[in-house]
């Protein structure tokens, strides 16, 4: 019985962690440039935006939810914040407004899914278009630039030579991982994902927690949008395009499933890191850049397949019929 939660969640982390280490070792021999601090920092900077979102997406997917709209929220909050700053609002107010907008979009998703009961895929797919559309309207198809240095600091400053986006992501990952792992409040997400009706009858406030999980995802996507805009020094209408798929892929590689009930923030980070490493390795090895997306797909599929085989073996059966107890 000892610490089942830790044991179960560590299995996948161990597997992906081993892969990460394996790729790192192989690359150290393959390319002298790989282990340079420049390369490592660039790699981490590249994944920081998606890693920030992955923290909240993990909680959401553990609770059985799913958000396709985070890429659009990134673009929308970035554009909205930039617009407010250009309109003359103080940077602090504009940033807070941007975060509030992200959270509001998340709440909008969560309310429709949790209270009205529309399917998460359909709802957030709609939001993906809704808020990308609003971004296009806001930017009029052009980048919003001319942002003050005080705003650019958010994403461009360095502490001990490390860029702020990496630091922000690291803090959120460490705090998020601890909270999802240990806090009673977030443990409820696992129960909701494990059996939503059972969770409700166990006294868990399912609707409220689901809405909150979407709101948090929106908030984190908003933060990611602000960080990205600041780092690039301009809001772009195409910012975050396809980001939702990278985030969801990372979370699933890291041990979550679309059914919910499993997954960890640290696992999602490892998933994100693994994808970034593979991309980086292929680039350093001079592999045709067009193969990268293919390899990411292969990684995701392998992780899920290995996991499935492991579970079947643990259950001692290879059922050829669908599992009927899951139908209702």
């Amino acid at each position: 019985m000892k610490d089942w939660f830790g044991r179960v969640t560590r299995q996948r982390e161990f597997m992906i962690g081993a892969l990460v280490v394996g790729v790192c070792i192989a690359m150290t021999f393959a390319s002298p440039y790989f282990l340079s601090s420049g390369n490592i920092l660039a790699l981490l900077l590249g994944l920081s935006v998606e890693a920030i979102i992955a923290v909240a997406m993990t909680n959401l997917m553990v609770a059985g939810g799913f958000d396709m709209s985070v890429g659009s929220i990134v673009a929308f909050t970035g554009a909205a914040t930039a617009t407010l700053i250009v309109a003359g609002l103080p940077v602090v107010i504009a940033v807070l407004a941007g975060l509030a907008i992200g959270a509001a979009v998340g709440f909008f998703n969560g309310f429709i899914i949790g209270k009205i009961g529309i399917n998460p895929f359909v709802t957030t797919l709609s939001s993906l278009s809704l808020f990308r559309g609003l971004t296009l309207f806001l930017t009029r198809g052009k980048n919003i630039s001319g942002l003050p240095d005080s705003f650019k600091e958010i994403g461009q400053a360095t502490v001990l030579g490390i860029q702020t986006p990496i630091i922000i992501a690291a803090v959120l990952i460490i705090a998020g991982d601890f909270m999802l792992r240990r806090f009673r409040f977030f443990r409820q997400s696992y129960y909701i994902g494990g059996n939503e009706r059972g969770a409700r009858l166990s006294g868990i406030n399912v609707d409220r927690l689901k809405i909150l999980a979407y709101t948090l995802t929106g908030l984190f996507a908003g933060l990611a949008g602000i960080v990205m805009t600041s780092r690039l020094g301009a809001a772009s209408m195409t910012a975050g395009t396809g980001l939702e798929l990278r985030v969801i892929t990372a979370v699933i590689i890291g041990g979550a499933s679309l059914q919910g009930g499993e997954g960890t923030v640290f696992g999602a980070f490892l998933g994100s890191l693994l994808m970034a490493l593979i991309t980086n390795a292929l680039t350093l090895l001079g592999v045709d850049v067009y193969w990268q997306t293919f390899v990411i797909g292969a990684t995701l599929l392998s992780a899920v397949l290995i996991d499935q085989v492991g579970k079947k073996r643990a259950q001692g059966t290879v059922a050829r019929l669908p599992d009927r107890s899951q139908q209702k």
């Binding site: 019985m1 089942w4 129960y191 009858l201 166990s202």
Partner: peptide, 25 residues
């Protein structure tokens, strides 16, 4: 509940997690 599989248990969780569900606090 009368329907332990769909409304009662968390089937993929171990016994300890099921025991804890309604009294996490």
């Amino acid at each position: 509940t009368e329907d332990r599989k769909t409304q009662g248990l968390f089937l993929d969780f171990p016994l300890s997690a099921n025991i804890a569900a309604n009294r996490l606090k």
